[in-house]
Each structure stands twice: as C-alpha cells, then as structure tokens.
Amino acid sequence: MKRLGAWPALLFFLCLGLGLSCRASDQDVAVVLSSNLEPYQEALKGFQESFGRTAPVFILAEGRPRLPAGTRLVVAIGSKAALFPYPQDTMLIYCMAPGVQVPKGRRNAIKIHTVPATLSVLSKIKQIQPSVRTLGVLWGSDATEDFLSDRTLVESSLGIKLAADRIRSVDDLPDRLRALKGKVDALWLPPDPLLVTPAAFAVLKDYSRGNHIPVYASAETLVEDGAVASLFSSYQEIGRRAGWAAQRVLEGTLERTAYYPEKLQMAVNPSFAREVGLVIPSTIVKEAVPSAP
C-alpha cells in the first residue's frame, strides 16, 4: 500500500512538470506575419508542419503583436514583420523578406533566404541551357550580395563565369543591360526587391526578346513576365526551413546566421524560351511545376 501510494503521486507531479514545461516551451515561440497575403499563409503552413508544435500567430497588418511574456523566439514572415522592433533579447528568425538585412543593432537574428543556394540554382540553369558560359547577374540590395558569396565555387565547379553588376535604381537598368549585351549568354536575377517590379520586368522582357538573352528569375510567377524559367523554393518550403531553424534554435544547435531552403523547384515558359532562341529540353519541361504556361 505504501509503495503503491507513492508512485501515483510521483507520476502526477512528473506529468504536471512535463505539462508545464511543454506549455512554457510552446509559449517560447511566436510567429508574426506581415499580413494575410496568401504566400505568407503558405509559409506559415510549412512552418507549422516542420516545427511540429503550436505557436501563437500575430498578423502585423491587423495591429501591433502583443507577444506573450517569456517569448524567446519570434519567427517573422514577410519584410514588415522582419523589420518590426522586437525586444532586443528575443531571438529572431525571418523569412519571406527578400532584400531585408539583419535589422540594425540586432545580433541574434537568422535569415532564411527565399531561394536555395546559388550553386544549386545555377546547376539547374546549366541543365536548362547547357551552352551558358557567362551569366550576367543583376542585383541591387545589400542583402542580395549573399548570393554572390559562392562565386568562386560556382565558377570552378560549373564552369560558369559570373558577370555580376550592381544597379542603384531601376533607372540604371537600361544602361546595365546594354553594357551586358554581347558579353553574357543569359541573365540571372537573384530575389531582389529592386528588380522584382512590373516596370523592371517590362524592360527585361523586351531586352531578352530583342537580344535573344534568356532571363532566369527567382519567383514562380515571373515566367509570366518575361523570364524563360524561374528557380525558386515554394513558400511552404521556406516556412518549413524556418520551422527547422526554430527547432535548432531552441535546441541551441544552430551555428550560422543565414540558411537557404533546400528543395529547388522550377517553372518554365517554353514559348517565351523559343522566342529568345532557347529550346528547353523536354525532360526539364516535365520536371517543372505545372503552373507554367
């Protein structure tokens, strides 16, 4: 009787302790979305799948997020959410925020990039266009410079020379494009807010068509705006990577300040490719996501 009486009590306190610790752990993490935009919701879904636990979700467009007391980690989805002034001692993981640098003065922030690492993107471009020798890379924001850090590795392992050219504003685009004419076999646009605008793509589309220079972009729908192909990660995949990073942060096993999503997807526009004199191999077309025209 005596031994039986002690075990249930111990078990009860153990469960209570576990329950409390699980509860506290759940409340450690909060998710903040810039708005209810569908891509952010998809990223949230990916995050929740990967993170495996529930976390309170706040929509910045609906009001300032009131983080629960004791929040140790914020996962920000979207540029505005990433730039929000969270308490200094809160860890920040941000994604779906192309062009956003680690906020000024914040040391404990981790960025999840919007597309996979340069080497894997350019390997796919090499498959689509085996003849590519020199690839023009246009970029503008400081944050995009990360994509050029693998430059030497890309050049040695893929045999693609990168002709990187930074632009200061969209006004520079015509000049920069003209300067690249005859010097590059194709153009790649890393995810950069300065270049992903209807106006910039209107210029790129005509340039691509007029000079038979294929343009490769970093967001699925840009194949409708003049890119022959887009190499990207799904929004859900980006969210998954954020969830993976959040788990590692809580475990204390994360080492770097920036991570790339792993799964690469591809959208192609075969008819536009034909217009610029590029025949995309049928195996590649089959591999592409079906949303492409």
Binding site: E38, M96, P98, G99, P193, V196, A219, T221
Partner: peptide, 14 residues
C-alpha cells in the same frame, strides 16, 4: 492574382 502577390511580397516595404 498570384502574380500580383509576388510583386506585393517583394514590394511590401517600398
């Protein structure tokens, strides 16, 4: 549309 959402995502803070 989906296409506009892409531009919106990129131009969020513009």
């Amino acid at each position: 549309s989906r296409r506009q959402e892409t531009f919106q995502l990129y131009q969020e803070a513009a």
